[in-house]
Design a protein around this nucleic acid. Sequence first.
DNA 1: TTCGATGTTCGACGAACATCGAACTACGAA
DNA 2: TTCGTAGTTCGATGTTCGTCGAACATCGAA
Lengths: 116, 116
Amino acid sequence: MAPREHAHPDLHEVELVTVLAALAEPTRLRIVRMLAALEGERAWKDIDLPIAQSTLSHHLKILRNAGLVQNRTEGTRCFISLRDEELEGRFPGLLESVLSCGDPVPLQTAAEKLRR
Amino acid sequence: MAPREHAHPDLHEVELVTVLAALAEPTRLRIVRMLAALEGERAWKDIDLPIAQSTLSHHLKILRNAGLVQNRTEGTRCFISLRDEELEGRFPGLLESVLSCGDPVPLQTAAEKLRR
DNA sequence: TTCGATGTTCGACGAACATCGAACTACGAA
DNA sequence: TTCGTAGTTCGATGTTCGTCGAACATCGAA
């Protein structure tokens, strides 16, 4: 579909676990970092990662539902940005601490190594 | 098995995504909060949650592998504590921001609502 | 109106996850 | 040594997740 107007949750209704779950995935964490490094918004098309469009759309939906990210539609294309200030209000220090840890995000699915 | 000596990872080898994944589960987040509220260590047996022993053991292993938690064995029983200071060194502000958000942890599996 | 570009939704698939009960192991106490 | 206590590991089960390609919807341009 074309970029539609999406519902963005009120951050007061977003739970911490939801945000953590959204961040606990390499691809999504990478997206968040990319947006943070931008200090503004980024065109959907310019998010180029080695994944299918549908997968990217899926991840963005999850980030959006977790209140991490915001969509703005302009004609047929859309722009993504971090809801950093609102997040700071709801979860003080969280985003910053996640971003300040600058080490590379692994390509692997995080929890893979947790079991053993 | 009886409480055995477990390997605890060097925090420098623990990745951020790993920690986030460990925290992004209600039961585990609850355990971490419980330990944080204690300001010390807690006996395994005293962690009473409505889950089977084997499940608790499983979650503790994941927290341990993520470097969040530490086991100390004493005879046949063991004590769990948060590795808060080390974590502060590796991921400054992270644990604090997670703990400071005091709202209740849902019983539900976090990411359940993210998809839709 | 037709076409192309841009994202989104659907359905399917395999991998990973949380959970349990049962079997097991190691230790202290009787 | 035998028994109970304390945790861990194993195997099984049902659920959720990340991923893809295909079909679809919406808009601007020709």
